[in-house]
Amino acid sequence: MSVTEKDVRYVAGLARLQLSEKEVKTLAGDMNDILGYMDQLNELDTTNVEPLEHVIEMDSRLRKDEAKAPISHEDALKNAPDADSDYFRVPKVIE
């Protein structure tokens, strides 16, 4: 499988990244190298190996269903690039 420049642009679009032509070329090469390494890993027989989703061996740690105090409304909006007195404000979204 080889990654084309079109694939790179598609993935960059999904991640909302703006790439220069040069970066697209470099990244296509990098991605192909990564997938090549994956292919190499695929040579191993993993038929009886459980998939590993987490590197730390830990079971569910559940929290009691209790509500604590929220942060203040002012603090909630403090770091927002734009807000009015109630809401976060973002450029108009049209679906």
Binding site: R63, D65, E66, A67, K68, A69, P70, I71, H73, A76, L77, D86, Y87, F88
Partner: peptide
């Protein structure tokens, strides 16, 4: 009583952005 992954309530109809962590 609290959200899925944060220990804070989310009661319907409260003032905007007051039930957050």
């Amino acid at each position: 009583n609290s959200k899925a992954f944060a220990p804070v309530a989310s009661i319907y109809g409260e003032a905007p952005n007051t039930q957050v962590t």
